[in-house]
């Protein structure tokens, strides 16, 4: 019969995970259903909304557009891996800026922003808006999200500075 489960081994938030999944199971579904990491949300299943964004081998990607078997041997980071000892600076910045309303899009934004800030911390507002353009939020109007990421960038540039406190 077509589509029998196959083994998959990957690292998620630094931990080795082994599973058996049908090839048609997406990475998002694997994280949520097999590993119970429900912080990764699925909002469109077409790669448009960005709610399911996770980091695979350092790149922010859509976990709804990737089958779990494709992540064989990969290093996956999800929102649950951020700030396991208290809030990650990005999470703290989101909290401070009231960048969360319903919170459904938030994990995707955090993962996109995480990679954006690893790339560089000198984002200007316009460039950052473009960089975050693949993540949709229906509640906040985006401005506080942009504020939060810029504040986190500022804190990363000046670890001892005002924004870091």
């Amino acid at each position: 019969m077509t589509g029998q489960p196959v083994p998959v081994t990957l690292r998620v938030n630094g931990r080795r995970e082994v599973g058996r999944v049908e090839p048609r199971v997406t990475l998002a579904e694997f994280l949520r259903e097999e590993l119970g990491l429900t912080g990764t949300h699925v909002g469109c299943e077409q790669g448009v909304c960005g709610a399911c964004t996770v980091v695979v081998d350092g790149a922010a990607v859509r976990s709804c557009l990737m089958f779990a078997v494709q992540a064989e041997g990969c290093d996956v980071e999800t929102v649950e891996g951020l700030g396991r000892d208290g809030l990650h600076p990005l999470q703290q910045a989101f909290w401070d800026a009231q960048a969360v309303q319903c919170g459904f899009c938030t994990p995707g934004f955090l993962m996109t922003a995480l990679v954006a800030l690893r790339e560089r911390t000198d984002w200007d507002r316009t460039a950052l808006r473009e960089r975050l353009g693949g993540n949709l939020c229906r509640c906040t109007g985006y401005e506080p999200i942009v504020d939060a990421v810029l504040a986190a960038a500022e804190a990363a540039r000046n670890p001892g500075g005002e924004a870091a406190r």
Binding site: T2, E45, Q46, G47, C64, M66, F67, V69, Q70
Partner: peptide, 28 residues
């Protein structure tokens, strides 16, 4: 069987989700 090449999958997978594309074998 019906086969498709899978590379990035960013166009193919959405079509598969909608079952507009339904390969029986996906070759990564």
């Amino acid at each position: 069987r019906e086969t498709r090449v899978l590379a990035g999958g960013q166009s193919l997978v959405p079509m598969m989700a909608l079952r507009l594309a339904r390969p029986e074998v996906l070759v990564d």
